[in-house]
Design a protein around this nucleic acid. Structure first.
Lengths: 373, 373
DNA sequence: CTGAAAGCGCTTACAG
DNA sequence: CTGAAAGCGCTTACAG
């Protein structure tokens, strides 16, 4: 039994030869028209296009791939555990951004999700050995990332999401997300917080490490102790454990900046469960700007970037690299602080004067207070 | 300037001809060996394998695709808005499950994320016109889903995630998630709840509609009014709005079953913000079992399915369909209720007898002093 | 401005 | 058990 309609079974897909015959030209001509090569008479061109439309023909990528040695596909290999990626809003948004440019470019996204380093290497090797993709996106850059060397050796065009540690031969599409951490620390310090902690993500990931460094630097520049930090694996469980650890310390922080929203939300739960008021006793800042945060109680102040725009820019850059052999780095607008209701002055702190414009914040800790909207 | 190492630039990829020459056989023989066809002398086979290994050759899918008219790729077209999919834990887990079987099968996942119905149709048409995939996964089944007919007409093998509305020619891989709703209603009814509401997802999606129907049916069977329901778009914002609507009603529910965890979490925020105690005043049940739920306060009772297993089973089924021309439906273990701390007896309700097993919870709020963990 | 032919790198009857 | 040849459906110099 076939699952298909019978009439369809009868009519095989047309090929370029069918179109050529129908239009009364050679296959080469048809190819020229579909590849926008000059030198085809306007009316011949129209006739060919009409024939193709009538027959419902579109060049088969299979054949095209073989003769042009191009896959018309871009790869994304994600190495993360399913339960962690399931909570992470970055990838879906990033992929949506990538898709938005690929669709118009006749390219397709080949996705690979792998659990560990070994299968990750294998995934890249297979992708190139089988000639599956024309280039790849390299996300979640790590310390001494072995993928850079591998990709170079494999001669696979790539674009890195963020700047790698060492100079790499690939274009980087960067978004300064650490700027958001700096803004958060600045805001909290202005509110009067002194004991500010950072719940970092996986320290082997560059963006996580950079956020942590930025935290410490911003703290130091504010004349505060930037060593209150605990690293996690980016999971909600990690965020919860880190929060428990922080509030168990004798000098409990009055503010916590988390490396992602899932951890911040878990942290909110822990604080709440421990009877610690947010933002009355402890201010909380997340990272990602996930939709849900707006509806929490209190609404989660967070740091927002533009993962969709990041994906689109990365795709454009990778396409350019593949087409021209080179592409410029691109720098996107930095992440910014989005204040909602989980941040306020520390307990017993005098209020600052009301600021005149909404985007600017009171500066001295001795005079801050009504931000708790 | 090339981004690659020079030595690599010198050595082009080996082809089957190189291997054949190196092993002193014809190309056909090499092909036979790599396709496990019988009739090759054992030692010839070894020699060929050795040559291939030495040259680092692997059949190019490009060429293989053209001669076998197979893409060695499976497609997944997701039609959802980025911000909704970003919060939804289903797809990442589902895709991880799919990947887990594709990796060993020499297949690859081609992903497409589209914003609306028009681009969705286009995506499928392009996938087959260009011969990109050998089959597709059809998720988020809808009422009068036009994709079923389209796919049939396009003659593209497919497997549906869940049973479509009308009989379809494609195998279905089903997981009875509505069973979780029934279990939740049963549990809440046993606890003494009578005014139980359901915050449904997008009513045009079959799984959402089925959960809603199951809710009403289970309520009716329990002798309760199953009409307290509000539909949403599955977003956190939708869950928040629905919750606001429910608690504004004169006969405010004492329990709410949400169609997904992001909505439940937003609902928790709204309830909390409105001074409604959870679970003291209102019990809350989510759906998905996202990691974060465990760390909320109160920890979110929810309904858990196995999206990863679902993805793996769907991939296996699709591969079978493509290989054999047909495949059996598969039925997975139904979703089940996972009790945590957001459910308790309704206000002022007498406690049920203490059950012997740990999975049950104290019931009366008048003596549930220790539930508030 | 157009056509005939070779080639991309495999697979697969068909002979031997 | 093995080899030579045609073919998959395109693209692209190369002639005209």
């Amino acid at each position: 039994m076939s699952v298909f309609e019978d009439d369809a079974a009868v009519r095989p897909k047309p090929t370029i030869s069918d179109v050529a015959r129908h239009a009364g030209v050679s296959k080469g001509l048809v190819s020229f028209v579909f590849n926008n090569r000059p030198g085809v008479a306007a009316q011949t061109r129209e006739r060919i296009l009409a024939s193709a439309a009538e027959l419902g023909w579109r060049p088969s990528v299979k054949a095209k791939s073989l003769s042009t040695r191009t896959s018309y596909a871009l790869g994304l290999v994600i190495r993360r555990e399913p339960h962690i990626i399931a909570a992470d809003p970055f990838f879906p948004a990033f992929m949506a951004g990538v898709e938005s440019v690929l669709t118009g470019a006749g390219r397709v996204l080949v996705l690979s999700m792998v659990p560990d380093a070994r299968t990750e290497q294998q995934a890249y090797r297979t992708l190139v050995a089988e000639n599956r993709v024309d280039g790849v996106f390299v996300t979640d850059l790590r310390q001494r990332d072995r993928r850079i060397g591998l990709l170079q050796q494999l001669r696979l065009p790539a674009v890195t999401i963020g700047h790698p540690e060492a100079a790499a031969p690939f274009p980087a599409v960067n978004l300064d997300d650490a700027a958001g951490i700096v803004a958060a620390v600045g805001h909290l310090a202005e509110l009067g917080h002194e004991r500010i902690a950072h719940v970092a993500g996986d320290p082997s990931m560059l963006h996580s490490a950079r956020r942590a460094e930025s935290f410490t630097r911003a703290m130091t520049e504010a004349g505060l102790d930037g060593s209150r930090m605990v690293s996690t694996d980016f999971s909600a469980a990690g965020g919860a454990a880190a929060t428990r650890e922080l509030i168990a310390a004798r000098d409990q922080p009055t503010a916590i900046v988390y490396a992602n929203d899932p951890m911040a939300i878990a942290g909110l739960g822990v604080l709440h469960g421990a009877g610690v008021g947010v933002p009355a006793d402890v201010s909380v800042v997340g990272f990602d700007g996930i939709d849900m945060g707006r509806h929490l109680f209190p609404a989660l102040s967070t740091i927002v970037a533009d993962p969709e725009g990041w994906g689109a820019a990365a795709a454009t850059t990778l396409l350019t690299l593949i087409a021209e052999g080179r592409a410029e780095d691109v720098e996107l607008a930095p992440a910014r602080l989005l204040l909602r209701s989980s941040t306020a002055p520390p307990p017993g702190h005098p209020p600052p004067p009301a600021p005149s414009e909404p985007s600017s914040h009171p500066t001295t800790r001795s005079r801050s207070s009504h931000v708790s909207t």
